[in-house]
């Protein structure tokens, strides 16, 4: 018997290296599990498409392929961006005027550059979670394809492609 403590390798996935599990049905419909893989979804996405991978009533989780620089977006409520692969710079901006109805759901695109004050920025790598605060603007920049999981509410630009992304 070895006295050496075992060494463990934690498996995180990425755009270039992911492996899907699946659903073994006994007495059910596999569609009930709405099963997909974030990296597979992002690998087929255009930059900054907001593709829902989970939905619970009005709330969604969106898979976003970050590549290049996004448009500015204004959010009426807090959102949270979790980088699952790569590195993303997140700029935050305090607009001079209200750019989105505070009662609305989901973020909206801003025409051009907003007027106002810069709040700061975050350079986020794999596993880093960043708050996108209510009433403010943000944009993403990434030098190489990266993946963001966005905690938000179903909005005007959320895309639903369940038949394309899920096991059935």
């Amino acid at each position: 018997m070895s006295d050496t403590a075992p060494q463990y390798t934690t498996v995180f996935a990425s755009l270039e290296n992911f492996e899907k599990g699946g659903v073994d049905v006994i007495n059910d419909d596999p569609k009930n599990y709405v099963f997909s893989n974030v990296f597979e979804v992002a690998s087929h996405a255009k930059p900054y498409e907001k593709i829902a991978v989970a939905k619970n009533m009005q709330y969604v989780l969106e898979a976003i392929r970050a590549e290049g620089t996004s448009e500015w977006r204004a959010t009426p409520h807090d959102e949270f961006a979790l980088v699952l692969d790569g590195e993303v710079t997140i700029e935050l901006f305090d607009p001079d005027e209200t750019l989105v109805d505070p009662e609305a759901s989901g973020s909206v695109a801003v025409d051009g550059d907003p007027a106002g004050k810069p709040m700061g920025q975050v350079v986020a790598g794999q596993g880093h979670m960043t708050m996108l605060p209510a009433g403010r603007c943000y944009r993403f920049t990434s030098d190489r394809p990266s993946v963001i999981l966005l905690q938000t509410i179903d909005g005007p630009d959320t895309q639903h492609r369940w038949a394309d992304i899920c096991l059935s």
């Binding site: 498996v11 995180f12 996935a13 992911f18 492996e19 899907k20 599990g21 699946g22 659903v23 073994d24 049905v25 006994i26 007495n27 059910d28 596999p30 009930n32 599990y33 709405v34 099963f35 997909s36 893989n37 974030v38 990296f39 597979e40 991978v53 989970a54 989780l61 699952l84």
Partner: peptide, 12 residues
């Protein structure tokens, strides 16, 4: 059912 989830998988 049996659901096997690997890194990046999403399931309801």
């Amino acid at each position: 059912a049996t659901v096997v989830m690997k890194a990046g998988d999403v399931a309801a």
